[in-house]
Design a protein around this nucleic acid. Structure first.
Lengths: 130, 130
DNA sequence: TACGATGTTCGACGAACTACGAAATTGACG
DNA sequence: CGTCAATTTCGTAGTTCGTCGAACATCGTA
């Protein structure tokens, strides 16, 4: 039994066919999580701590768990970092067009991004403005 | 003071531009409410008590209020009945394609309808089984 | 006027949610 | 090895949610 690269519980992701629409909608109905998804859509992958949201780390961790368990994102461990990515392919297969439509609808209501997207935390977007 | 057709507080509906996406997503993330929306999509209008969901009348009233305040449905009073209708035009204007995409995604996960749609309550769909 | 049908409001309850700080875990680096 | 940095887990506080029953309001009708 090799001391493999993963000693932690291993992240649970629902299978594509198991993704529940109501869970997805609920996950997306929170401003912080919606911001995370929105940022993730512009980039293939991103470390947890680098999102432009101002909540405590523990709270952020909770939101990532909700997103992961809903099937919206996948998480990969590398060193002591955890990278998150949108499950665009799986989502598209399960619910065609859903992500695009919802994100487009959201961008329609919150057009400005204050340029803080690539700069990391502390930027212009607080993600709390529902 | 004429005994007008409306003595009650008058129902509050958000304007089309005021409809909040996060509120809409939250409203849709409940199985009972999703069932209501789904049924409403197949018919132009329907009285509150005739939906195939098995919750107490007060609970149902609460759900209709959530749906109405989110902007998903409109309600019209006629005698002591209250008719609900999907705000398809407003929704389409505010968030193009959203309703269709979400409903299509939902139907993909719950295809069968047990024929109880037109028969009223007590039918096959319980809407409570999430 | 009294009754029944339809639907809302109010008050309550338990469950779930969001939030935080503190402590623990893991890996990189001095 | 000791320390720092990133993140999770745990415990907890406050809020929101979904549900119900009881009471109230309205309208049509006997």
């Amino acid at each position: 039994m090799p001391r493999s690269t993963r000693r932690r519980p291993a992240l649970a992701h629902p299978a594509t066919e198991e993704i529940d629409l109501l869970d997805v909608l609920h996950a997306l109905s929170d401003p912080t999580r919606m911001t995370i998804v929105r940022v993730l859509r512009a980039e293939p992958e991103r470390a947890c701590g680098t999102f432009p949201v101002d909540v405590a780390p523990s709270t952020l961790s909770h939101h990532f768990k909700v997103l992961r368990e809903s099937g919206l994102i996948s998480q990969r461990e590398e060193a002591n970092r955890r990278f998150s990515a949108l499950r665009t392919v799986d989502l598209e297969q399960r619910f065609p067009g859903l992500l695009d439509t919802v994100l487009a609808a959201y961008l329609r209501t919150v057009p400005k991004l204050a340029g803080g997207l690539a700069g990391g935390p502390g930027g212009g977007e607080a993600a709390g403005g529902a």
